[in-house]
């Protein structure tokens, strides 16, 4: 079963170009995640500025 498994996975992934399709999908998911994080970061930065302004106004 192990020999079969090695041959099978190698055929599916490394010995064909399928690995690049898999990699592209994974990289796209990762890129989507990073873009979401950066957008959140920017939104948060604006909110934090409002909070900071309110704090200084109080003082």
């Amino acid at each position: 079963m192990n020999i079969f498994l090695q041959t099978q996975t190698q055929d599916i992934l490394l010995q064909s170009d399928k690995i690049y399709s898999v990699l592209t999908v994974i990289l796209l998911i990762f890129a989507g995640f990073i873009v979401t994080m950066i957008m959140n970061e920017r939104k948060l930065h604006k909110i934090e500025k409002i909070v900071q302004d309110k704090k200084t106004q109080k003082k």
Binding site: T9, V22, L23
Partner: peptide, 26 residues
């Protein structure tokens, strides 16, 4: 962090690696 994960994703899937035990390419 982004750079290291990208490196792990690309190198981890495309570099030729020795087969470890019964795991095959997995």
């Amino acid at each position: 962090g982004i750079g290291l994960v990208l490196y792990a994703l690309i190198s981890g899937l495309t570099t030729t690696l020795p087969v470890m035990g019964p795991m095959g390419q997995s």
